[in-house]
Amino acid sequence: MRLTAPPSARTGRRDTEGMAVASFVLGLLGLLVLNLVLGPIAIVLAVIALRRDTPRRFRALLGLGLGIADLVVFAALASVHGATSWSIWGG
């Protein structure tokens, strides 16, 4: 007895759309908090979505760019402030 639907091309395409959107959201969120964690996750999701030929290619590319920007922001702030993280309140 099968409890789930058999895999299809439509299911796979929806998965890649979700990965592209998640990459964008995590990359955007990573600019504010947890950039060292969320940046690489956004990059990986974007690369997987692009390799699987997502219909939301632009969103995946934005997620990839934001994930890279997360790491650049982290590196810049770590080198300037000598800290491994930063806070909105400057603490």
Results as ranks from 00 to 15, higher is better:
residue 31 L to V: 06
residue 38 L to H: 07
residue 58 F to L: 05
residue 9 A to E: 04
residue 27 G to C: 04
residue 85 S to H: 11
residue 40 P to H: 04
residue 91 G to A: 15
residue 55 P to Y: 02
residue 69 A to L: 07
residue 20 A to S: 00
residue 12 G to Y: 03
residue 4 T to V: 06
residue 17 E to Q: 07
residue 90 G to Q: 15
residue 39 G to S: 13
residue 7 P to Q: 00
residue 59 R to L: 13
residue 3 L to Y: 07
residue 77 L to G: 13
residue 9 A to S: 02
residue 80 V to D: 02
residue 78 A to N: 14
residue 2 R to V: 14
residue 77 L to Q: 13
residue 77 L to E: 14
residue 74 F to A: 05
residue 40 P to K: 07
residue 30 G to P: 09
residue 73 V to H: 10
residue 42 A to N: 04
residue 61 L to A: 06
residue 64 L to E: 11
residue 8 S to R: 05
residue 80 V to T: 08
residue 89 W to G: 11
residue 58 F to W: 00
residue 58 F to Q: 08
residue 41 I to R: 14
residue 7 P to G: 00
residue 55 P to W: 01
residue 33 V to L: 04
residue 8 S to A: 03
residue 56 R to F: 11
residue 14 R to I: 15
residue 76 A to T: 13
residue 53 D to H: 11
residue 21 V to C: 07
residue 89 W to H: 10
residue 41 I to Y: 08
residue 82 G to Y: 04
residue 71 L to C: 13
residue 84 T to L: 10
residue 25 V to M: 00
residue 67 G to M: 02
residue 16 T to Q: 01
residue 14 R to G: 07
residue 79 S to T: 10
residue 15 D to H: 09
residue 56 R to I: 15
residue 72 V to F: 15
residue 3 L to R: 06
residue 61 L to Q: 06
residue 50 L to P: 13
residue 69 A to D: 06
residue 5 A to L: 08
residue 6 P to Q: 02
residue 45 L to G: 05
residue 70 D to Q: 05
residue 91 G to M: 14
residue 75 A to T: 14
residue 66 L to S: 00
